[in-house]
Computed example of a mutant assay.
Amino acid sequence: MFRAGMKNMFLITGAVMGAGYASGREIWQFFGAGSGLAIVLFTILFTICTTTILKISYRLSSTNYLPILHQLTGKRIAAIYDYMILIYLFCVTVVMIAGSGATFETIGMPFWWGIIFIFIGLIIIFSKGIGELLNVNQVLMPMLIIALFFILVLFIKDDSVSLVMDWDNHTNWMAAFPFTALNILPLIAVLGAVGNRIKSNGEIYITSISSGLILGIITLLYNSSLLHIGAEAELPPIPLFAIINNYNAVVMVIMMVMLWIAIYTTAAATLLGMVTRINKKYEMPLIKIVIISLFIMVPFSGIGFSQLVAFLYPLYGILNLYILVKLIIYPIYNKT
């Protein structure tokens, strides 16, 4: 039970900790000054939403996200969100592909090498099946979480960054809602695809509580670090660079590898949500859907990483607020 719960937790963190989150861009875009209460609220809301989605997935033994949408919104509204989720998953995967190219550029390699590298990596993992994807997440995500936690704690210690939240200044507390809402669609898409693999309620609680706490703690550390830097200079498109800039080349290379791992795991998770839904409709082999989808996505990756993040994430954060409310009230509504 514990091992299965942790495996699901790594799948969730893999879906959330993509290029936008791991690079710091997404955190800085939503939080910043006066966000201590917002981060606490995000942790609570994320845990509640994860628990609700997992319980619905478990009860329905789902293999894609559509049955979950039907439970939450009814079939008419679910049809609208079905297309919204497909477009979102497509766009986020494109963002991750562009992020892979941008990461390769930062170490002096051609942008398209990064595109080709992630393209091949995704085909390899999907050719081995969903079980192998879960196993890979179980290996890669602990590495990413430990590396990100270590570098943030090291920076906070070296630069004497204050972690004390100013409870008199909680002007940005409402950011918790669009930020949580933004991360709901990949949660529904990914967890809907593995509902038939969940074995017990204990597994659900281990998954939701551990994923909520990990994301909440790292978000607090990251936001505090970015606030410290942002007070002195303008942050670059990938704020993580400003944090690791003063460390040696070994740290730089390790964090670039970790950033690429975050990109890869998110691309795999969002692609999983998309292709399992398409597979339900057209009954094609998953690997065939993956290859066709990737060939369609690659040309769009030329738009650029920071531009895609700046446009898509706030937009979907607002559009998903309806689903967020439904997830919060679902346990109460379902009992009555």
Rank of each mutant, 00 (worst) to 15 (best):
G273S: 10
V92G: 00
T266Y: 10
G202C: 15
S224A: 14
L308R: 00
S162K: 08
M252A: 06
I323V: 08
L215K: 11
L37H: 02
G129I: 13
P67I: 12
G273F: 13
I296P: 05
M274V: 03
C49H: 10
A231G: 00
C91L: 11
I151G: 01
T207H: 14
F2T: 09
P186N: 07
K128E: 02
G304P: 07
K55G: 00
L133N: 10
T207M: 11
L327S: 10
S160M: 14
Y65H: 15
L144T: 00
R25E: 01
P299V: 02
L187K: 14
M252N: 05
L235Y: 00
F90N: 01
E132F: 12
L215E: 05
K7N: 08
N279L: 12
N172C: 05
W167Q: 04
G131C: 14
T276P: 03
G24N: 00
A242F: 02
L144P: 02
I145R: 07
P186S: 08
E203C: 05
I198E: 03
G108Q: 08
H228V: 00
N334I: 14
G302H: 13
L41K: 02
T266R: 11
A249V: 09
A175E: 01
P239N: 01
C91K: 04
F150C: 10
R3Y: 11
M6D: 03
L312E: 03
K7P: 02
T171V: 14
V275R: 06
A233K: 03
N169P: 09
M1F: 15
L45S: 04
L154R: 07
L185Y: 13
L154V: 05
T270D: 13
Y316Q: 03
N196I: 15
F241W: 08
I184P: 06
I130S: 04
I97Q: 08
V309D: 00
T52R: 15
M109C: 03
V40H: 08
P314G: 01
T106K: 14
A98N: 05
F150P: 05
M255W: 06
G129D: 03
V40S: 07
W113I: 00
V95I: 12
L227W: 06
F295A: 13
N64H: 15
K157H: 08
N223L: 04
L45Q: 05
L227E: 07
W112P: 00
F31M: 12
T171H: 15
I156Q: 01
Y264A: 13
G195K: 15
Q138R: 05
I145Y: 07
L213V: 03
E232T: 03
G24H: 01
A102L: 14
M165H: 13
A262N: 10
C49R: 12
A175V: 06
E26M: 03
N320S: 11
A22W: 10
G202I: 12
P67H: 15
A233P: 01
I244Q: 04
P237Y: 14
D82K: 10
I156W: 05
L60R: 13
I146H: 04
G216L: 11
F2Y: 13
N169T: 06
